[in-house]
Amino acid sequence: MTDTTTAKGVNGSVSFDGQLVTITRKGIGNKGAKTIPLRSIGGVQIRPATMLVNGFLALSVSGEVGRSSGGVGRLQDAANDENAVIFTKKQSADFEAFRDAVLAQL
Rank of each mutant, 00 (worst) to 15 (best):
T50L: 13
N11F: 06
T24F: 00
V44S: 07
G29V: 03
T22A: 05
S40F: 07
G29H: 04
I28S: 10
I23K: 08
I23C: 02
G27L: 12
S13F: 03
R25M: 08
K34Y: 06
K26F: 09
I41Y: 00
K34D: 07
I46L: 14
D17E: 10
S40I: 05
T22S: 07
K8G: 07
T35V: 11
I46P: 12
T24M: 02
G9F: 05
P48I: 13
S15G: 08
R39A: 15
F16Y: 04
R25V: 01
N30R: 10
R47I: 14
L52S: 14
N54W: 10
L38Q: 06
I36E: 00
V21L: 00
R47G: 06
G32S: 09
N54D: 14
V44H: 04
I46Q: 11
S15P: 05
L38I: 04
V14N: 01
S40L: 09
D17T: 09
L38R: 04
V44D: 04
R47C: 11
S40A: 12
I41F: 02
I41Q: 04
V14F: 00
V44T: 11
N30G: 03
R47D: 12
R25D: 09
G9T: 10
V10I: 15
L20V: 04
K8S: 14
G27M: 11
F16T: 02
V21T: 01
I28Q: 09
I23P: 01
G42I: 04
R25H: 11
G12Q: 04
K8T: 08
I28V: 12
I36C: 01
S13C: 08
G29D: 09
G29N: 06
K31G: 01
S15V: 05
I46K: 10
N11G: 06
G29P: 03
G9H: 10
K34C: 04
G29S: 09
K8N: 14
N11S: 09
F16V: 02
I41V: 13
V21Y: 00
G32L: 06
I41H: 03
G27A: 13
L20E: 05
G42K: 01
G43I: 08
N30E: 05
G32M: 07
T50Y: 13
K26P: 03
G9D: 10
Q45T: 07
